[in-house]
Design a protein around this nucleic acid. Sequence first.
DNA 1: TTTTTAACTTACCAACTGGTAAGTTGTCAA
DNA 2: TTGACAACTTACCAGTTGGTAAGTTAAAAA
Lengths: 196, 196
Amino acid sequence: MTDTRDKLLDVATRHFAERGFYGVSIAQVSTELGLSKQALLHHFGNKEKLYAEVLKRISDDLMQQISLSEKGTSGTAHAQAVFISIYRNAKNNLDATQLLVRELLDNKQRAKAAQHWYLIPFLETLTDIVISSGRKKHLSTAQALAVVYQFIASIHYFLISGTTLQSMFGIQQYQELDHVYEHELMTTIASRLETL
Amino acid sequence: MTDTRDKLLDVATRHFAERGFYGVSIAQVSTELGLSKQALLHHFGNKEKLYAEVLKRISDDLMQQISLSEKGTSGTAHAQAVFISIYRNAKNNLDATQLLVRELLDNKQRAKAAQHWYLIPFLETLTDIVISSGRKKHLSTAQALAVVYQFIASIHYFLISGTTLQSMFGIQQYQELDHVYEHELMTTIASRLETL
DNA sequence: TTTTTAACTTACCAACTGGTAAGTTGTCAA
DNA sequence: TTGACAACTTACCAGTTGGTAAGTTAAAAA
């Protein structure tokens, strides 16, 4: 069944997100589903290929998300809406978010294996949205991309920090922070878009 | 000599930053300096303790940085100056920055070992600076912290993305992005601080 | 009914991991 | 001169890693 394959991918995604490529044991992944390590190898060949498939699923998901945002009206309101939906999607998919950030860190070491050019259309679409939202014309692509990257950073960085922030400030204070974060994020984005 | 110890810490810092805790082999670290693995174990006891010392050096450095910024005049100009100096320091210490972000990701797994409460005074100082820079009084700590976190995010996230962005957009476009980033960062921070 | 194929399992294995034990060597204080 | 100690080394080890080889089993296709 493809069922097993999907389940393996689910578990592997969580493990890779939590422990990183080197920290994952394929035996542990399969054992969690009551399978032998070789069952996993039967489906995916080797660890790199498993990781590649995990990444591909995430990439496909990201592409689908952004393609939905593409055909909207322009303007700052639209841009804001796009970023807030990115935030909410990422929040509902913390494993994928963690894994994406890990990729940023690890790709110097394991660059060849997993090309993540899927991020290009994602960033380029967002850059276009930001450019078309502005009124001033003297905005270079690099400048727009820099702004986009700051927003994505504020989204991803906060979402991967949950555990740390919780252990630092306690659950109560963290929940308060989490509660206000989306609004403060939108305020920042709005105020910045208005400068363009 | 303490010289060897420091060299080991330097190499270990780089390795941990590039590969993460699990990806580092202590044998590789020591071999890079022409030493045996046991030379390293002689100095640090075990891998966890080595990692703890690496983290401590970074933490001390961060504390020192922030203590310098503390005694300044208040106001948005001061706040901006503090964040720009954080950006420049982080940029001059990419290994430490990478490792810090890794800690955010890994501490769920390896929480007990390395408490990173050193980040608390760092974030609290910045929160105070942001609060005292604003004119409006109805700003909660959580809100200020959210804003601080967005700025730190924009700084760290971009700096850990160097390799990825380079392989995505090519060196030329990346250099252009890198060139404008600091300015765009400051514009975002300035425009956001003005809303407070 | 036979054959093929997918989805597994048990049995291995070489390479590497972090770590222990037991030296060796040079320096420096008593 | 002796003894202590820091800074190492070689030898070793048990556990784990990713991966190969060779089955087994059940179900669908011929």
